[in-house]
Amino acid sequence: MEERKYLATWKKYIPVIRLHLKKSINESQEFKLNFTDFESAGNSGRSGYTFNMLMENGKVVNNISGSAVARDLYEALTSDEVSRAFLQDRSVKMSVGKSFLLSIKTTHISKFK
């Protein structure tokens, strides 16, 4: 299995993702991804390019092991200093559906758990 085949693609999107992460504090964000960017990076197999990823305090809390696209997005986010700092003390849900929209929803994590 080829590893990190979508990492370079996600790194191209990091500046746009950063902008949408910041805006997602006030309201959920969506933006269209370019299907051909991902298609040329590699065949996604049965799972397609769809995924749901939930991060709390910068750590993934759901199972994304079956999605190379999600794993590589997480690696791109955590290797970017600005994105990594943003993810702290927040709950961020990112998902891509069949329409190839990246959705981002952010909430603050209560310190009083």
Rank of each mutant, 00 (worst) to 15 (best):
E2A: 14
R4Y: 10
K5C: 09
K5N: 13
Y6E: 07
L7K: 14
T9I: 13
W10E: 11
K12E: 08
Y13P: 14
I14K: 04
I14Q: 03
I17G: 06
I17K: 05
R18Y: 12
R18Q: 15
R18L: 15
H20P: 04
H20V: 02
H20M: 04
K22E: 12
K22S: 03
K23M: 13
K23G: 02
S24Q: 07
N26K: 11
S28Q: 14
S28V: 04
Q29Y: 07
F31I: 10
F38H: 05
F38W: 05
E39V: 07
S40M: 11
A41K: 01
G42H: 05
N43D: 15
N43R: 09
R46D: 13
S47V: 12
Y49D: 09
T50C: 15
F51R: 09
N52P: 00
M53D: 02
L54Q: 11
L54F: 14
L54R: 13
E56H: 06
E56M: 12
K59R: 14
K59E: 15
V61G: 10
V61A: 04
N62D: 14
N62R: 12
N63F: 09
N63R: 12
V69H: 08
D72C: 08
L73V: 01
Y74R: 02
E75D: 10
A76H: 05
A76F: 01
T78M: 11
T78H: 00
S79G: 05
S79P: 00
D80L: 02
E81V: 00
R84S: 15
R84G: 01
F86T: 09
F86G: 10
L87D: 00
L87F: 09
V92F: 08
V92W: 08
K93I: 07
M94H: 04
S95I: 07
V96A: 07
G97P: 06
K98D: 12
S99R: 10
S99I: 00
L101F: 13
L101M: 07
L102N: 05
L102A: 01
S103I: 00
I104G: 03
K105E: 09
K105I: 11
T106H: 02
T107N: 09
H108S: 03
H108G: 06
F112I: 10
F112H: 11
K113V: 04
